[in-house]
Design a protein around this nucleic acid. Structure first.
Lengths: 345, 345
DNA sequence: ATGAAAGCGCTAACAC
DNA sequence: GTGTTAGCGCTTTCAT
């Protein structure tokens, strides 16, 4: 096995405690002693066994982040931001994906690695409030994303309704009237796209346009192919829309692909707005107008909340921090000369 | 603190060992005893403390994966594949990113979390052979990616030279002659793009075309913006190329964006080939021809190798498994009717 | 088939 | 300032 504190102590001719003091940069160690111990450490190539330290301290310094899938760049970019935010607090991140399966989300929220992770950041899609209420795991949990829950957990999310309204308002301002919503899951109230769909309804109504529910398109998933398939179905109808508000950028990009394949021009024939501001949206041939959630702020708020709870703050009254977002206007909704500006909201 | 084995033993009126037997599904436990213990476990809500188990067993069941950045979908997609492959061996993956910094790569390879990870899969960019030789950490390490090392570690990578040659051969077959290489780092031999650049040189020579080194474009990084900037510089010259072979898909996508902005048609004016086959490449307005490494195979081979080493196989003679790859022909190199076919190589 | 006891490597109390 | 000791929760001989 490896070299332990005992081995180093023996070599240096001191006690275990002294070596421990040196390793942990304890204040009151004479420089001479420190040097002597350090020499033994170097000679033996000693590396502290963090597992033992974890057992002793009851904490590991590891937090978990569970997202639906890395295939969606939004979550990949978010994961990078979380890792950086956690590193600033000396936490390491264990990343997992749930494939958007309620089963897997449940498993993760119950603490799939009990006692090895100090806390969890979870971005659920199909988890239900009752799942959360039945949770027995005691490690702190912070929720991310659009789904809303009646459960005593901190939830970090931008104001999705307001953001969706901003997107639709922009489309209306550009003169569009038949605006479709692409990426609904089912007709139910608690579906993932709930809030953005509500924003779509509210803003249309506010603009004096009666929301045409037949323009709400259900997709199988939230990827590019789902957007392409949904858009294709929409275009098969007689009365095609003049604009599309997509649940996320991937769906929007899939939709743009479908439009291109049919020879339709963006935005002249159909304007498109997405949601997420993944980097890809800045490089599509027709660059994509989108809502840009402040991913760094989301990551920071989530990690800060977790760290705070780990330091002992009670969660009696979970807050609901609101990270910022922007509407980023690009070519998919405007003539090229107009695009490129950004609206902070 | 939490509920321990001792608490359960006390409640059930048995010894610790018996409870442990039940928890670990040990064979020789009478059903009656098992039921009694299980009851106590359920009543107390006992969860085994994995940290303690780790300390005792000297293994944690956690392996680390370190990639340059999640912003590149290739690595995000690969990470997903590695997590799945590891799960099949009951390993959990701790994902980290190095930002492509040699400093960070060094840190990670030295075992940034000693004793908590059983092994490491690292995709280096700027790490040097000497760094690897100086490594003191004993946890097994598996290397990924294009860089080559003279060090005793297993290295999983497709045949980059052959793959690059296939890409260039395809371009030549389409009638292109002035084929640029986009994404070189410096003029040195050991640069990251080394092998793909060699493939470019070899295939051109084989086709009877003298490689024009002025068509090798250095970029600052490996992202979309780097590709756009590099392509712009190339187009500022008088004698523009008729085709571009990019180091990866992101650079290729950036290049396509630059071409579009200048009103050039793809592939009529300039054909483009990428490398990685990220999903995005199937949805760009002009879909991108690319080399598609078998990511699942790469992930599987890497995890299998690690697991094998963890089970005791010596690494005296590290192998060099060669996962497969394909040339996926899309619109960026052919007229639309020709595209969509795939060549297994 | 079950129990008793040792010890994985470390930190935290408490002595000196 | 430095040494001694107990114990975190678990698995693993070794008894019985």
């Amino acid at each position: 096995m490896g070299v332990s504190l005992k081995d180093v102590a023996q070599r240096a001719g001191v006690s275990i405690k002294t070596v421990s003091n040196v390793v942990n940069n304890y204040q009151h160690v004479t420089p001479a002693m420190r040097a002597k111990v350090q020499k033994a450490i170097d000679e033996l190539g000693y590396r502290p066994n963090l597992t033992a330290r974890h057992l002793r301290k009851g904490r590991t310094g590891i937090i978990a982040l569970a997202v639906p899938e890395f295939g969606n760049p939004y979550f990949a970019e978010l994961a990078g931001a979380v890792i950086d935010a956690a590193a600033r607090h000396d936490y390491t991140v264990l990343v997992d994906h749930t494939a958007g399966l309620r089963e897997k989300e449940l498993l993760v929220s119950q603490g799939f690695r009990s006692h090895v992770i100090d806390g969890l950041i979870l971005s659920p899609i199909h988890l239900e409030t009752e799942d959360l209420m039945a949770r027995t795991e005691t490690a702190p949990l912070v929720l991310l994303g659009e789904r809303e829950y009646e459960a005593p957990y901190e939830h970090i999310a931008i104001d999705n309704v307001a953001a969706a309204r901003a997107a639709v308002r922009h489309l209306v301002a550009q003169g569009n009237r038949r605006i479709a919503f692409l990426g609904s899951r089912t007709g139910q109230e608690r579906q993932p796209a709930h809030l953005r769909l509500r924003g779509w309804r509210e803003e249309l109504a506010a603009a004096g346009i009666t929301p045409d529910e037949s323009l709400v398109v259900v997709t199988d998933g939230y990827g590019r192919e789902d957007g392409a398939a949904g858009m294709a179905r929409l275009l098969d109808r007689e009365d095609r829309p003049d604009a599309v508000f997509a649940y996320n950028d991937l769906i929007a990009i899939g939709a743009m692909r479908a439009l291109t394949e049919r020879g339709l021009r963006i935005p002249d024939d159909v304007a498109v707005v997405g949601f997420d501001d993944i980097e890809e949206s800045r490089y599509t041939t027709t660059t994509l107008t989108t809502i840009a959630p402040d991913k760094d702020a989301i990551a920071r708020l989530a990690v800060d909340s977790l760290v705070e709870q780990l330091s002992g703050r009670p969660v009696a009254e979970p807050r609901r921090p609101r990270p910022g977002y922007r509407l980023v206007v690009r070519e998919s909704t405007t003539s090229r000369s107009d695009s490129g500006h950004t609206e902070d909201l």
